[in-house]
Design a binder for these strands. Sequence first.
DNA 1: CGAACCCTTGACTTAATTCAACAACCGTGG
DNA 2: CCACGGTTGTTGAATTAAGTCAAGGGTTCG
Lengths: 267, 267
Amino acid sequence: MNPLQAKFARYVELDFQDQVTLDALLRTEARLVPAGTDLIREGEPIHFVKLVTEGWGCRYKLLEDGRRQIVAFLLPGDLCNPDALAAEQMDHSIGAVGEMHCALIAPDVFDRACLRSRKLRQALAFDACAMLGTQREWTLNLAARPALARIGALLCELHYRLAALGLAEGGRFVAPVTQITLAEATGLTSVHVNRVVQDLRGRGLLHWQGRSITLPDPDHLAQLSGFTPRYLHMPRFTPGTFAPDRQLHAGTPTPPPGNAGKSTGAF
Amino acid sequence: MNPLQAKFARYVELDFQDQVTLDALLRTEARLVPAGTDLIREGEPIHFVKLVTEGWGCRYKLLEDGRRQIVAFLLPGDLCNPDALAAEQMDHSIGAVGEMHCALIAPDVFDRACLRSRKLRQALAFDACAMLGTQREWTLNLAARPALARIGALLCELHYRLAALGLAEGGRFVAPVTQITLAEATGLTSVHVNRVVQDLRGRGLLHWQGRSITLPDPDHLAQLSGFTPRYLHMPRFTPGTFAPDRQLHAGTPTPPPGNAGKSTGAF
DNA sequence: CGAACCCTTGACTTAATTCAACAACCGTGG
DNA sequence: CCACGGTTGTTGAATTAAGTCAAGGGTTCG
């Protein structure tokens, strides 16, 4: 199954021609990135649009003191460099979390393929939108939520995104991550992640053995963590495990007191 | 001076026709957003591409407990909804920090204007790239840096972006923010922001009186905070106050030990 | 079988929060 | 003009969430 198709189908309804186009894109040069190695590094020039076809990757940045901060996870169907033509230098690195398979696509081929179909352009716009929204959500998550909610929200996001691809079933998914990976992604220490994971286990909200992660009650975890899938912008997907639209119809969160609450009207 | 032109000029060299186009875009419907009020709220439909022409805004999200987290600052020339056609619902809110002036542009007008010029498309792609890069940097900043570096890096970013617009001179710029605003943006309490600000003042790295902020030694502050402007993707801008390219030529930061360091080659 | 990893636990430290109080400042209206 | 309420900035003392350090046990894999 073509994971790019799977994802795009969550944004718009693809017609047959689009599917053929996407399939053709995937049949270009492929590449296997061994677990723990880098696909591309900060500062390097971008030569290809790259697509994750199998396995997980991550975007990360290194700090002065050598720690690394993961700022995004790349799942099957995710594009590494949709902006290959604009940015000539990577402003971050991309590494494989577990073994990762990639398709390498020449930027001009990619752009021409997408320009031909309105649907594809739209799907691509949706995807860009989701990437930005996700990054904003991560910003919020890391800045403002306590450790438990932070980890909970991340697990919910991964589960949701994987479910949209058909890679999660009954709250269970396979994740090539360690608690250390999770620590690098949440800005916590692995020691503290461990304590929180045990807490979640104790509450019956998380089973995690080896590479298999199960969320027995995603709804409850989502509520506890403040997770809402709106920022993922998948209008054509509502997972069975989530109460349909519960959060979405709850309305806008109450604005803070003071004049910060007055909206100036509809735009 | 057209702030959108000013910004785009940092990405690519605009020809006369492009400048005319951009000017025309700004002469559409305008709107004044009073300080502290919202331009648009999470969950609302998007009807216009909006552009900040004067003053500051911010993207923010509200948390369950009523706190708000600012996830980005919008400066003159920044687009609020370049993705108006894709996302039908806001996944976050946009508020005015101090009084803000906006231009409202019909999405289809905006898109047609941009599609006509290769240069404009490119500038727009750069801008999207910079937005994403900035959001990733914020993620890193909030997740991994201690309070002093966090605040320092934010100040450096604002200074750099304003300088690129010609709105900062000799390290000084006018910012309609309070320490409370800064706290909401850095994920700290205003009390702690205050202590850090005093620390920075004591070190002679920050003058802040009223709405006027001065960074007497931006270079030093940048180094102390780990700020590097690469993520802003402005190839055609090098501010005099920054040592030219010092950070950029320092090469890629050293990869962590273990097999996480092996790059698989050039892409 | 040994060497990496990864997970786990405990004791201690620390950065940042919380709570509280007060001074300085602001625009507004009397 | 001054009094006012509200917002912002400042400071101190007590608290807490998360980090640090350190050690031991379990896997997996070559």
